[in-house]
Amino acid sequence: MRRRRPPWLRYLLLTLAAVVFAFPFWFMIVGAFQESPTNTPGQLLPTSGWTLGNFTAIDSRLDLVGSLLNSLIFTLGVLLGTVTFGLLAGYALARLDFRGRGATWVLMLLVQMVPFQLLMIPLYVQVTRGFGLGDTYLGMILPFAINTTAVFIFTQFFRALPAEIFEAARIDGASELRIVRAIAVPLVRPALTTVVLITFIGPWNEFLWPFLITKDATLQPLAVSLANYISNVAQSTANPNGAILAGATALAFPVVILFILFQRYFTASDLGSAVKG
């Protein structure tokens, strides 16, 4: 009989880790709905003192709905660019034989290796001074407009489809554009969900770039306005903690909920290449 390590040790380790990972979320959501967020462990399961006041408090300082709307516009712009142009590029790279295909592929790999922080200064100069797009949605969207990870996912998806589908259409005399419209686009739905989820978290969570190019508070996404609230306004407010947690909840939970609903579409390899999203 083989002796095995008792399984409870494994579950103890996993459960302990899960608590450490999930606890700040518990603290965040409980604190967001409490009159004043606790600093004693005894009050982590409150029975009274529930309120929506923190949300109205943060809303009075940074226009919560407007900020969420800006986050949404930023994110939808990136999604639109990624889904249209990323799909076309992915299809071409996977299924078409054309001049420059190898070079495009190499370019994609190189993009994954350039840290955004290095490009921060030249992009700032280029977008605000060169293009005059400071304080615009377009300027916010531009550096993220086509998510390279998404192009990768589209390419791998189209590669995995049987070549005969496309060959048969060609033999029947369909033009290449028609093949894209009538075959590639309708088939892409399974990859589309993954692409949308992965692309979504990039701009929604992004802080540095919109922070650099938006001075106008009415254009700032929630990540930026909440950060400004934390670093500037909070010190001059009597009880900012509940408001900070309410803002944090509003920013975090759309992604958390989307992810829990669609978690089977996330796989390690997808996330792996999403690092540089």
């Binding site: 700040p24 967020p37 950060a227």
Partner: peptide, 19 residues
Amino acid sequence: AFYVPYLTASVSLVGVWLL
């Protein structure tokens, strides 16, 4: 539980850690 922090905006989580 393990990868929800990875998916969440750092600005949100920094707010929690600050407190």
